[in-house]
Design a protein around this nucleic acid. Structure first.
Length: 542
DNA sequence: CTTCCTAAACATA
DNA sequence: TATGTTTAGGAAG
């Protein structure tokens, strides 16, 4: 508070300092208030967590902002200068006028802050303006040009961000975090090659063709149902409400692979496997979950999975994991790495696993029969132009959001549990034995069920993993292996989710770059990686 | 040398 | 015009 006060004094509009993480809630998507002045919202909403921040920072930022908004140099200089003062904190100096976070980091946070973990470009801009003090005043004026350009640049440049076709009207694409996490900055994970995924990918990608316009929405199965109201904020429950029409779980996704079918690079191998990736990428866990849960709904095939798990060697995974865009049409089927589901899988299995695994992913994916949209399958979109549209490379098409919804729900939970409840509860009531997997054949039935089922599944999934993440979890391991009671009450879920989110956020922060604010002691922080992984995927190659 | 920021040229819808 | 992609140059660690 004290800090805040000081900062406030300097710059009313500007936030003391930017720590999106520290106050996730204030900057989250279903915006509490239209244009809340940062100060107010934060102060009120954040409650205690974010409080600690660097006071100096605020001043510095403000100063910088005021002083030299224009140039990089200005900003930099400002940052540097201010840094000295602010630097005190951590030895870290703010690299930029807005703090230590890079654009990429900011974008990441923006995306993460959204319930569905996806934002359109404009939403990202928006977030920046709302949540990052430095940009607060630069929102609408022409001054925005520069940083917006940078935002776009970053989105395109980093493999860490993936573009998802937004089928709603002519909206711009959704930008999501690449589950694989091609982080470019800090968390050095395995980057064997100096180049690292991002750059490398970028490069590779880049060479792809540029001439041919990708016909993005060709078949667009769901297109017809207009996302109608596709929520301005994806997070909004709307999608859920109208699952009736377009919310198919379907989503196609094209892995991160490069266009070069030959992704022999080992780097890619592991990367494709989301789950495995998780081991390295703590922060992204969430996203993984999202994907996973979505997927897992669809891909229960346990048997296959298990195999994979054990093997986990990598190559195999790679192979099986996805065969992405092969030039030929046939190749388009993406086989999802089972590994992907593993973690979830495990949990699911216990609870829901009755469905016999006859339907393996492959079966599901069967290229031959284009499943009605109901099938919640991950198929590499037929949409991809054989021309090799570049769009496919990182573009993830995702239609309908049920899959994501589950996630979203988590986001909403806090906000409106009530709504949430209705569904989940109902879902829980459903027989767990429902065939979750939708094979083309089943689609019909699934269709009707899908809503509930998905909910259930989602829940279970959430349950499964979150606990791991959540520090509080009484006995994460036990839970995990044990199985998840489907009938847990929502509160539980909520809690888990909450923890999860916060937890993740926190970890993210820590990871991020040492944001200064210190949170509460996070008991299990250190364990985070290990616990989550260990428990959830024992199979992890490590 | 690598990471990042910024600017800007292009390409598309 | 808004979005996206790419390429370039420069600064900082």
């Amino acid at each position: 508070m004290a800090e805040a006060g000081g900062a406030a004094a300097t710059a009313p509009d500007i936030d003391p300092d930017f720590e999106p993480q520290s106050r996730p809630r204030s900057c989250t998507w279903p915006l509490p208030r239209p244009e809340l002045p940062a100060g107010a919202a934060e102060a009120g909403g954040t409650g205690g967590t974010g409080a600690a921040a660097e006071e100096g920072a605020g001043g510095a930022a403000a100063a910088a902002a005021a002083a030299g908004p224009g140039r990089a140099e200005g900003a930099r200089a400002g940052g540097g200068g201010g840094a000295a003062a602010a630097a005190a904190r951590k030895g870290g100096s703010r690299r930029n006028a807005w703090g230590n976070l890079s654009y990429a980091d900011l974008i990441t946070q923006a995306i993460e802050s959204s319930p569905e973990k996806r934002l359109t470009l404009s939403q990202i801009y928006d977030w920046m303006v709302r949540c990052v003090p430095y940009f607060k005043d630069k929102g609408d004026s022409n001054s925005s040009a520069g940083w917006k350009n940078s935002i776009r640049h970053n989105l395109s440049l980093h493999s860490k961000f993936i573009k998802v076709h937004n089928e709603a009207t002519g909206k711009s694409s959704w930008w999501m975090l690449n589950p694989e996490g091609g982080k470019s900055g800090k968390a050095p994970r395995r980057r064997a090659a100096s180049m690292d995924n991002s750059s490398k990918l970028a490069k590779v990608r880049s060479k792809a063709s540029k001439k041919k316009p990708p016909l993005q929405s060709a078949p667009e199965a769901t297109a017809d149902s207009p996302g109608s109201q596709f929520p301005k904020w994806p997070g909004s429950p709307s999608s859920r409400s109208n699952e009736d029409s377009d919310v198919w779980n379907t989503f196609r996704l094209s892995p991160i692979l490069t266009e070069q079918d030959d992704l022999h690079d080992e780097e890619l191998l592991p990367s494709m496997v989301y789950s495995s990736a998780s081991s390295n990428v703590p922060p992204t866990v969430t996203e993984e979950l999202e994907l996973i849960d979505g997927l897992n709904l669809m891909s229960p095939s346990s048997s296959v999975l298990s195999t994979q798990q054990s093997t986990s060697s990598g190559q195999i995974q790679r192979d099986s994991s996805f065969s992405l865009r092969s030039p030929s049409a046939a190749g388009q089927t993406a086989t999802f790495g089972n590994s992907l589901f593993n973690p979830v899988e495990m949990s699911l299995q216990s609870s829901v696993s009755h469905f016999s695994g006859p339907q393996t992913l492959e079966a599901l994916l069967t290229p031959g029969s284009p499943p009605p949209r109901d099938v919640l399958m991950t198929q590499v979109d037929p949409v991809l132009p054989q021309t090799g549209g570049r769009m496919s490379s990182r573009t993830l098409l995702l239609l309908g959001g049920q899959a994501t919804q589950s996630k979203m729900s988590s986001g909403n939970l806090r906000g409106k549990p009530a709504e949430q409840q209705a569904e989940p509860v109902g879902a829980s009531a459903l027989p767990s034995t429902l065939p979750i997997v939708a094979s083309p054949q089943n689609t019909a039935s699934i269709n009707s069920l899908k809503a509930p089922v998905s909910a259930t599944a989602a829940q279970s999934v959430q349950l499964g993993s979150p606990p791991l993440l959540s520090s509080a979890g009484p006995a994460p391991l036990g839970l995990n292996q044990d199985r998840l009671p489907i009938d847990l009450d929502i509160d539980m879920y909520m809690e888990n989710l909450e923890c999860d989110m916060d937890y993740i956020i926190r970890s993210e922060l820590m990871d991020a770059d040492g944001l200064d604010f210190n949170f509460e002691p996070v008991p299990s922080t250190p364990s985070y990686p290990s616990s989550s992984q260990a428990s959830s995927h024992t199979w992890v190659p490590s």
